Amino acid sequence: MRPDVDALATFVQVVDSGSVTAAAARLGLAKSVVSKRVTQLEAQLATPLLHRAPRHVSPTEAGALLAERARAVLAQLDTVADAVMAQSGALQGLLRLAAPLSFGSRQLGPLVAAFMAEYPRIEVSLDLDDRQVDLLGGGYDLALRIGRLADSALRARRLGLSRRALCCSPDYAARHGLPAVLDDLSGHSCLGYANSTVGHLWRFAPAGEAEGEPRSLILRGRLTANSGEALLDASIAGIGLVVLPTFLLHDALRRGALVRVEIPGWEPVPDVIQLVYPPTPALPLKTRRLLDYLAARIREPFAWDTSFQPGASTAG
């Protein structure tokens, strides 16, 4: 008998996700349905396809071969379906997109809305959370991430650098003065992006073309939070110094609520902005369209970095 396409697709998701539970979440199916499809596929092919553990599964030798061949077959089917939809203009379906909270609400939300207006039959589930989601296990089609890509199994398209800056309110600067060198930071209230109350880490690199090793400083302050917006508000209120991405800081700097603090020879280490997606042989057309749409509009030079060019408001 010829294996069912849905069963093959389900099996590939189980292998890629590493568990029946994760595959069920990604497919939007009950765990019992996923298990039944895999079991029926094993019976049909008369061979075990998975090594099963309480919380994890891995493919047998036969299962690995089937998953590899099935991915190619499913990719070809997706390509045919995409070609038909592209010709008819009927691009449709659900896209699940994840992004950091502050960047997503400030920069990504308007772009997603514009994309949906251009493709009225596309649905989008936008998940905004500063905690990094499991792209494969969570059933996401695409994610925007700021920072190092920890999962080497994912593919990524680099959009540019998320630059960071050291800032404080004019009131804080007047009351406490400003650091002249990096070691002076230990004597200041430094607001930290962290989940721990014992301290937080700020990383600085030699500025411009200067050579040298980066420095990491463990600092303490009156507030640590896992929300960039909360740290921004606290710094504007004069609670302390803050290092945040420029896309969060630029408006407050423009209107004078914050001033940039320059430490000669040093600057905060930037992060990388990138779009990440599953390592499938061929992305579905709807995912490729969203990927290309966002990449064409989130690119350097970023508008929010203009406040940090020479001549912008600084203190030091």
Rank of each mutant, 00 (worst) to 15 (best):
G63H: 06
A165F: 02
A252P: 02
P170E: 11
K31Y: 04
L50F: 05
P301T: 11
S216F: 00
T21N: 02
V181K: 15
R106N: 06
H250T: 15
G160V: 05
I122G: 00
Y293A: 12
G212I: 13
Q309N: 11
L290N: 00
T224I: 05
C168W: 13
A165S: 15
L232E: 11
L108A: 03
L41A: 08
A75C: 05
D82L: 10
A75H: 07
L249H: 07
L231T: 08
V133H: 12
A225F: 01
R203P: 09
S186D: 08
A174Q: 11
A90V: 04
T197G: 08
P270W: 03
D184T: 02
A22R: 10
R37D: 13
R297L: 03
Y119S: 02
P170Q: 14
V181N: 12
A207W: 02
E123P: 01
R155A: 03
L97A: 06
L94I: 01
A53R: 15
V38T: 07
S58C: 07
G177I: 05
S58L: 13
V14Y: 07
S313F: 08
V133Y: 04
H56S: 10
H200L: 00
I298L: 15
P179C: 09
R163L: 05
L29G: 06
E68T: 14
D6Q: 10
R220M: 00
R164I: 09
L111D: 12
D82R: 14
L108T: 02
P281L: 05
A257C: 09
L45E: 09
D171I: 14
P281A: 04
L45H: 08
Q309M: 14
T10N: 04
P268F: 04
G139H: 07
L191E: 01
L178A: 08
L178Y: 10
S32W: 10
T10W: 02
P206T: 05
A43N: 14
A210H: 13
G147V: 04
L258M: 12
D183G: 06
G187N: 01
I239A: 15
D151G: 01
A252G: 03
A24L: 03
S186C: 06
V242F: 01
A62M: 07
S169V: 10
L45M: 11
N195V: 12
V181T: 13
L231A: 10
A81C: 00
A303K: 08
V80C: 08
Q76Y: 01
A257H: 09
R222Y: 13
L49A: 14
L77K: 15
K286Q: 13
R69Y: 08
H200C: 00
P54A: 05
D183E: 15
H250Y: 06
S169G: 13
L191M: 06
S196E: 15
R71V: 03
